[in-house]
Write a protein that binds this DNA or RNA. Structure first.
Lengths: 193, 193
DNA sequence: TTTTATCCAGAACGCTGGTTCTGAAACTGG
DNA sequence: CCAGTTTCAGAACCAGCGTTCTGGATAAAA
C-alpha cells in the first residue's frame, strides 16, 4: 500500500524560504508557494500544517542555514576581524545581487510580524541574541590577536554588529548602490579598532 | 449649495501615518483607516484617491514631520554631537514606548514595498539621502568643534548613521530591551570620535 | 424655507487568499 | 494484476479587502 510522497520536504522548505525572503509573510500566497515549491496544496498542508506554521519552519531553517553557513567560522578559536567583515560582504552580495529581490528574512519578519505576534517575536529574539553572541565570541578571538581595541566590550559590540547587519538590510532593500553599502560596512568595521 | 467637509484632511493624514506606522501597508485595511481617522470611505477616496495614494501621502508626511521635528537642529551652525545623539534617543523613546507597536515607517516600507515597487523605492531613496545629508551637515558642524575625529569623512559617516538608525528600528521592532538599544546607540556614537 | 450640490454610512460588488473537499491517479503489497 | 491507501490537481468554500454605489442627511445659497 502507501503511495510514496513525490517531493522532498527539505527542498520544499528551502524554496519556501526563498519566497518568504523576497515577499515576506503577508504578500506571499499559498499559490505562490505551490508554484515555487512544485508541491500541491495537499502536500504543503499535510507536511507543514498551514501557512503560519510553514512560515515558522521556514524562519527556523533560514536562521539555521545562516548560522551554519555564515557564522560558524566565528566560533573557531582563531577567528579574526576579517571573518566578521566577510559576513557583511557576503550579506551585501546576497542583498544587492543582480535581481535585487531577496531580502533579509529576519529584518523583514521583525518589521512585519514581531510587533503584533509575540510568538514570532520570541523566536526572533532567540535568533538575534544567538547572532549577537556569536559576533561577541568572534570579537573576543579578534581581541586576543589585537585586531580590535583593548577597551572594546565584546558583548555590547556584538549587539552593535547585529544591529548594523539589520541596518544594512534596510539600506539594501531600498535599493541603495553598492558603494553606499560598502562604505556603511567600512564605517561599521572601523568602529571596532 | 455645497455641504462643507466634516473633517480636517491634515489631521486625517496624521492619523493615517500612525496606523501605517504600526501595521505597514498591506496589513492595514481601508476599514482600519476609516475607524482610525473617523472619516468615511467616501471622504478618504475623495480627498486621497485610493489606498496606495493615501499611503504615499502618509509616507511623505511622515518623512516631512521627521525632518522638521527631529533633524532640523542639525542644520543650525552650532549643531553638536549631542544633537545627533538626541535623535537616536528620541527614536528609542518612540520605538520602544509603552505599547511597543509603533514602528519606523521608512524601514518598514523599505522591506515591505521597495523591492517590488520602484516608485516607492525612489521616494524612499530621496528621503534616505536627505537624512544622510542632514547627518553629514550636523557632523561637519561637530567636527569644527572638535567633537569628532578630524579624519572622519562626514559624508560616509552620514550614510553610516542613517543605516544605524534603521538597524535600531529593526532591533526595537523585535522587542529587544531598552538597555540593548541604548548600548547600540552608545556604540554607534562612539565610533565617531 | 426651499433648493440643491455635496457628504455620509453602509450595502454591494468583484476579487483574492487561506483552507477544505473531491474525484481521479499512482504506487506498493499481495 | 488487483486492492487499497495515499497523493495530487483543482474545484469549492468562506472570509476579508479595495473600491464603487446608493439612498438619505446636511448645510449653504437663494
Amino acid at each position: 500500500m502507501v503511495r510514496t510522497r513525490a517531493f522532498n520536504p527539505a527542498e520544499a522548505l528551502n524554496k519556501a524560504v526563498e519566497v518568504f525572503s523576497t515577499r515576506g509573510y503577508t504578500d506571499t500566497s499559498m499559490d505562490d508557494l505551490v508554484k515555487a515549491t512544485g508541491v500541491s496544496r495537499y502536500g504543503l498542508y499535510g507536511t507543514f500544517g498551514n501557512k503560519r506554521e510553514l512560515f515558522e519552519q521556514a524562519l527556523e531553517r533560514y536562521a539555521d542555514r545562516m548560522g551554519r553557513e555564515r557564522f560558524l567560522r566565528l566560533l573557531e578559536p582563531d577567528a579574526s576581524l576579517a571573518d566578521i567583515r566577510r559576513i557583511f560582504e557576503e550579506r551585501i552580495e546576497m542583498l544587492a545581487s543582480a535581481d535585487r529581490t531577496r531580502g533579509c528574512m529576519l529584518s523583514h519578519t521583525a518589521m512585519e510580524l514581531a510587533p503584533h505576534d509575540s510568538e514570532i517575536k520570541h523566536v526572533l529574539q532567540r535568533f538575534i541574541s544567538r547572532i549577537a553572541k556569536t559576533f561577541a565570541i568572534g570579537l573576543a578571538a579578534a581581541k586576543e590577536k589585537g585586531e580590535v581595541r583593548a577597551s572594546l566590550d565584546v558583548r555590547s559590540a556584538g549587539d552593535f554588529l547585529t544591529g548594523a547587519l539589520f541596518g544594512l538590510a534596510v539600506l539594501a532593500s531600498s535599493g541603495l548602490p553598492r558603494e553606499t553599502l560598502n562604505s556603511f560596512v567600512d564605517n561599521t568595521m572601523s568602529s571596532l579598532r
